[in-house]
Design a binder for these strands. Structure first.
Lengths: 341, 341
DNA sequence: CGGATCTCGGCAACCGATTGCCAATCTATC
DNA sequence: GATAGATTGGCAATCGGTTGCCGAGATCCG
């Protein structure tokens, strides 16, 4: 029978520093220092305390520590859609770095809703040391507001006064456009993602500007939801646009367009060249495999975690290199067709 | 300038119930009760307190509450590999349910290592109310041990005395084997996943038993790592086995086998019928799309979270239906070829 | 040898809630 | 009008650590 009513009857209460202190014949504060202020305590005492702690299976209670120190050793990462394959490597990168530095990573999903994102972030904020906002749908002012409460960092979005990790989209876009130009394409369509997406606007602008430099025309179609279904929905508009090549906001949409096109008998790349974005899992085993502009997501996740943790510990900011996108030629692009299809 | 040295100089200390109490002219305990024991306090007092709390932006500090109550409103979910697409829907299902019931979900990855999994689980255990182990690689005894500290639940694994949510693999396997039998297949290969995987053993056994009932032969190949690369590695063994149809432990491996086969000119399904497992994202846009045995992962995640939360709150166990697998015929299966390839 | 400095460990306050217990007041009942 | 009972709110302990401050004893140094 548990002595403490709030515990489940059959679960043993974990050992505390008070238990260790009693067994070692010292005060709890001595145990605390022995365990995490190396050198502060006589070496032999420290050793004895460590042995006893080990023997009775003492484990620090992170919550109890967090209360007075305000440090939870936890990071939160919010994103619009957990199941979007774009984020897998990013999540893993952040998780690995966090774990290696002794931090726990909490994931939260905003389901493409700014309100939900804000609410979630607010709720989590008091339980974490810092927050990574991936592809935030929030207003700038909300983000700034969050930044006043805890250190935060945005990925693939820039907000004045807030640290960010953003992939440089230009190198990949340049190479993609050079590639399309060599293939004779003159008129392109950009299939836009959500209008609330900062990254969507960046890709849109960069494509337009780079295409302009090359004397190519770009028409922006959308916005569309950034999913397979959203890409499929764009098919008709792409046909009507008269473009010979389409760049989708992301691979998910490119895949959707590819499937939808396939169903109505459109041949890709013969009738339409298609370029995706991100190089997600699966984009290489469609048929044809999708030519895409790769985003180094694992690197983004790692850098985000690394920089946030550095900030938390007041470490000197790492000299940080901007991750670059990279053009990946596969088989969904080919020479521009001549007539309409 | 902050009065409290441990806070970042430029971040305001969040409001506490003490602040609210002072402004309302009541004691902190009254504030606490006003906010979460509706009716315990005079209605007008409660109303006044709520208004003040709202006005100064008071937010409960979950850590402070967790310390005396032992309840963190947090669930942890451990899995072997975050980026395995198999888990996406499962994670989302669990996250949705958790969020809707006011729980936070923490994700932890064990990278296919039992030791790391155990360590992670141990570390997290004091910060969470309960733990969901997905495809645990741990020993039964370790799992039982964890269960003594906190409520835990396993997914796709059964351990005596521990609650579990496991998909029934038999319906899908039956339909798959019936399908293969109709196509004239008599000798099958099962491409095994990790030997430490309980689910792998279940699939292996069930396939063997059901195939036996139908007078079909099965040879088990492996174990192999449950990834695209692992599937590719199995190609040679499949050829040598003389089987006319192969069932892979999961879709990832089926995809790997498909790609590897494609590279050496093997035609699927003409020369080899291929059946995957799980219906992961992407398994329908390979060419040919992979015939697979679908596992209802979202449902598994939802049920796991639901049941664990019910246990935490001592609610009556939900009448719980076992999620069933389902055969999904696509195009990677065809009539058995006659000669060797 | 005496004073300054170091080393080591304990005391007690604190973080921000929750909650058992108690007391004061109000209400109801006979 | 007395008393039982309900209502309302406060006191103080508690959860498990951390840390500023203090003092006893050891060590150092001129």
């Amino acid at each position: 029978m548990a002595t403490n009513g709030r515990r489940q009857a059959d679960r043993a209460a974990p050992a505390t520093i008070y238990d260790v202190a009693r067994m070692a014949g010292v005060s709890p504060s001595t145990v605390s220092r022995a365990l995490n202020k190396p050198g502060r305590i006589n070496a032999s005492t420290e050793h004895r305390i460590r042995e006893i702690a080990e023997a009775i299976g003492y484990r620090l209670n992170p919550l109890a520590r967090a209360l007075p120190t305000g440090r939870t050793q936890t990071l939160a990462l919010t994103l619009s859609d957990i199941t979007n394959p774009v984020y897998f490597e990013l999540i893993r990168g952040a998780e690995r770095v966090a774990a290696s530095r002794g931090y726990i990573l909490i994931l939260a999903e905003s389901q493409e809703s700014a309100d939900l994102e804000n609410e979630t972030a607010q709720r989590l904020l008091s339980s974490v040391d810092g927050l990574i906002l991936v592809a935030a749908r929030l207003d700038n002012s909300d983000i700034v507001e969050l930044g006043k409460r805890k250190p935060i960092l945005t990925v693939n979005r820039k907000v004045r006064g807030i640290g960010s990790v953003v992939a440089d989209v230009r190198p990949g876009i340049r190479d993609a456009l050079d590639h399309l130009q060599r293939l004779g394409h003159k008129k392109l369509a950009y299939i836009a993602g959500p209008s609330s997406s900062w990254m969507n606007r960046l890709r849109d602008r960069t494509i337009s500007s780079e295409a302009g430099d090359r004397g190519m025309k770009v028409v922006t179609l959308g916005p569309h939801v950034p999913t397979v279904a959203g890409g499929a929905a764009a098919l008709e508009a792409v046909r009507e646009s008269g473009a010979t090549a389409a760049l989708a906001y992301n691979d998910l949409m490119a895949i959707g367009l590819l499937k939808a096109g396939h169903e109505v008998g459109m041949r890709i790349p013969e009738q339409l060249s298609l370029v995706g974005f991100d190089d997600i899992f699966g984009s290489d085993f469609t048929s044809p495999p999708i030519t895409t502009i790769r985003t180094p997501h694992a690197l983004l996740g790692e850098q985000a975690a690394l920089r946030l943790i550095a900030e938390l510990n007041n470490e000197a900011a790492h000299r940080h290199t901007v991750p670059r996108t990279e053009f990946l030629q596969r088989s969904s692009t080919d020479r521009a067709r001549l007539g309409r299809f």
